[in-house]
């Protein structure tokens, strides 16, 4: 969704810069894909998860979302692969895997 609206495509030149590089739109940090420098991704094993929500609480990028079934899901658009969720998970339900392994 968001990426299209982030104005850094090839048609965006210096002439399109706002005066003083001001970001006129409030709350648009969500448009920035922070997931694109991730080298490892978290994989959650629902069998082990007890829905405690610590991964959600600790994720520095708010990339962990609560799903309708009460489990937590990683939004890979934002997840930068820091591994904090895996570290704090009391059930060792999250494993970090290399991106190329998938």
């Amino acid at each position: 969704m968001a990426e299209k609206r982030l104005r850094t495509g090839s048609d965006f030149t210096w002439r399109d810069m706002e005066v003083g590089n001001i970001v006129t739109e409030a709350g648009n940090a969500g448009l920035r894909r922070t997931g694109d420098w991730r080298s490892r991704r978290p994989i959650t094993d629902k069998e082990k998860c007890n829905k405690c929500g610590l991964c959600w609480l600790y994720c520095p990028d708010a990339a962990v979302k609560l799903s309708e079934d009460g489990y937590y899901e990683t939004d890979l658009f934002y997840c930068k692969g820091c591994g904090i969720c895996a570290k704090v998970c009391p059930r060792a339900a999250i494993t970090m895997v290399e991106e190329e392994e998938k």
């Binding site: 965006f12 810069m17 590089n21 001001i22 970001v23 006129t24 739109e25 409030a26």
Partner: peptide
Amino acid sequence: KPMTHGAFGAPDIYSEA
């Protein structure tokens, strides 16, 4: 009228700025 002053500029925008 919220807006952001002094945001960071990644390599895809710094030169243009």
